[in-house]
Amino acid sequence: MTALFVSRYEARIDLVQKTLRDHSKLDEKAAAALAVQVLRALDGLPEQVR
């Protein structure tokens, strides 16, 4: 059995994408695109604000 490596960034994208899909009517592609934008916005916030 081979272990599959998933980066922390990919795991965060998956979490946000799943949350968006669970709480909206977005399809998988739209949720994935929006998840990337959400994480970019959150990563742009200063550490003290997060």
Rank of each mutant, 00 (worst) to 15 (best):
S24R: 07
E47N: 03
K25T: 09
L20W: 04
K18Y: 09
L42Y: 09
K18I: 03
L26E: 07
A3S: 05
L15F: 15
L34N: 00
S7V: 14
L45I: 12
R8Y: 13
L45V: 11
S24H: 07
Q17H: 07
K29Q: 13
Q48K: 10
K18T: 15
M1Y: 11
V16F: 02
P46K: 09
A31H: 06
D27S: 04
D22A: 12
M1S: 15
E28S: 10
L34R: 05
L45P: 04
A11S: 15
A41M: 09
S24N: 11
A41R: 14
L4N: 09
E28F: 07
A31W: 02
P46E: 06
L45S: 06
V49F: 15
A11Q: 15
V16D: 04
R21I: 08
D27V: 03
M1F: 09
L42F: 11
Y9K: 14
L34A: 03
D22F: 03
V38E: 03
L42W: 11
L34F: 00
A32C: 06
V38A: 05
A41K: 08
V6T: 06
T19Q: 02
L4Y: 07
S7N: 13
V49C: 06
Y9Q: 12
A35D: 06
A35S: 12
T19W: 00
V16L: 05
R21Y: 02
Q37A: 09
A31F: 02
D14C: 01
K18N: 14
Y9P: 00
L34S: 00
L15P: 01
V16S: 02
L34P: 00
D22N: 14
Q37V: 07
H23Y: 01
R21L: 08
Q37D: 12
A30G: 00
F5S: 10
R40I: 06
T2I: 05
